[in-house]
Amino acid sequence: MRLITHNMLQCHAKNCNSNNFPLQLSQVEIVNQETEFNPMFLRNMLPKLEWNALVKTALQINVTLPTVLPESTTDDLDEEFLKTLHGILLETHILQGAMTCPNCNRVYPIKDGIPNMLLNETEA
């Protein structure tokens, strides 16, 4: 699971409807895998990201991002910034670990790079 996907996941346990995002990472095993830089994709993706959640999550793996998305229009966002974003979102793979809901503390495991969001019958 790359961090871009983590930015899409939220707790869906029964009655857990607020403060259920982003899921807090812990005990993660991370590997960085280079992939082709695609500034166009990143520019298109920016409005679909939850920026505050990404900043928070990046800090959990010791990467500091600007707390406010740079003000410039998406067309002239500087390349250096996009490259940082590329590294964080698309090259950072979480192989193993856990994600905890900040609201209800439900833990979702990540195994072999795959998050498991299944709930059991009593939780759903």
Binding site: M1, T5, L9, H12, P115, N116, M117, L119
Partner: peptide, 14 residues
């Protein structure tokens, strides 16, 4: 990007 879940649970309403 694989996610083990039923339908789109855990991705919505995000």
């Amino acid at each position: 990007e694989s996610i083990t879940t039923d339908l789109a649970n855990g991705l919505l309403p995000r």
